[in-house]
Nucleic acid binder design. Sequence first.
DNA 1: CATAGTCAGATCCTATAGGAAGCGCCGGTC
DNA 2: GACCGGCGCTTCCTATAGGATCTGACTATG
Lengths: 244, 244
Amino acid sequence: MQNASTGPRAGSSTDDQTGPRRTGRAVSREVLADHVYAELLASLMDGRLAPGAVVSIDGTARELDVSPTPVREALARLEHTGMVRRVALKGYRVAPVFTQEDFAELMEARLAIEPVNARLACERINQHGLAELGKAVEDLKSAPRGPSFAEFKDYLEADERFHQLIARQTGNQFMEAAYSALGGQVQRFRLFGGVGITDAEHAIAEHEAVLAAVTTGDPDKAAAAMADHIRKVRSRAIADAPES
Amino acid sequence: MQNASTGPRAGSSTDDQTGPRRTGRAVSREVLADHVYAELLASLMDGRLAPGAVVSIDGTARELDVSPTPVREALARLEHTGMVRRVALKGYRVAPVFTQEDFAELMEARLAIEPVNARLACERINQHGLAELGKAVEDLKSAPRGPSFAEFKDYLEADERFHQLIARQTGNQFMEAAYSALGGQVQRFRLFGGVGITDAEHAIAEHEAVLAAVTTGDPDKAAAAMADHIRKVRSRAIADAPES
DNA sequence: CATAGTCAGATCCTATAGGAAGCGCCGGTC
DNA sequence: GACCGGCGCTTCCTATAGGATCTGACTATG
């Protein structure tokens, strides 16, 4: 049901039994494992896979209509991001929800990395990057923020995109990789950790402050604005005291 | 030879092939993919696999006497560390050597992360952690630093271990993960990027300064000592002007 | 009623087979 | 001598089979 995006193969599945199964994705310049990876990542990012859920290799293979091998490969990659965990002979499951301690650690790490990113991005960003960044903030403001999750999703996507863009605009592949390692967790926290709609108004203003500083070309102010944003996110989350 | 308990095919390979491959994993509570991962990582870390070398799936499988599937899984994990690169239908190869620009980016990232690690570690380290850290510095000093690579290896290992310990002692899983993502690259640079023996004397003193600050319990000084160390590593490397 | 033993199903893990694509070599042609 | 098409080899990629292990339920016994 969820592979209708790239899967050109349809119908004809009813088999002449002798033939080799699935004549397979014609030009398909992309490997099955990539497809599985993207599918699983999307499921994790938009909440279809809840924390703690088991991700059966065989089950996923059946669901996506591939053999277990590419699923295994995709899960091995995902494990390195911390979004799924593997136990030796028991299989994979989605990483559990954050404890308050995990959350504190995550924010500490963000405070170490993201202000630096903002500073570097400010020093090196070009016109195109500024446009992208502006669009992210614009999307953030225009995204519907209804109480239903489906409507809130676009807001969260724009939020994540803004931070990713900052990381990319550093021009430093390692800083970008460092944020990417965190970004998945950040997004998962946005989904399950209790970031509420009330957060949005404040957050938008804070993002605008970062954008303004970057546009002005003031690295110190950009770093400070980003640090301020992260600290306030932390304060608001703690104040809400998410008790799951 | 390493599948004493589970291997269906045993015996028949009595033709004592090449290496005395480590006969570990006795009770086999560890999966083959883990073994392959460790083996590949070791090969990357101590220079047996040079940058640019192709890592054939089938070849590695034959070499380690396993089937291609666990090799594939291990490589999928390694790819996420940046130490090997995969091209869609062409296979894996070891990531190429650093350009000077890559090196500058790596050092920039280390400067953003490691002083923070030193500060946090200083605030939270316990007696056992201090002992481990002290032993790393001790090994650093006592390691042979002969011109041959084999003798220099222990020194490099202790160096990497010191920084890893600092990262672990932060008590912050994300900072530790962030450094781990860099650590492999740092180690690869130590091997191939031109860190010479002349570096060792200065570096030892700088490590001792970090250790002293951490032992004293002065977070500011620890962070400053670590930043100083990284800057000097960068300066020395640039001065040596590694031209490969 | 509680606990231990047994069995069946599901799942993971590894091995092997076979199709598809890239790479190098070789002989033929201009 | 230079260029081009065919051929085989290697390698990757996916599918499938089978052994080993874990989980959960069911039954028998103290």
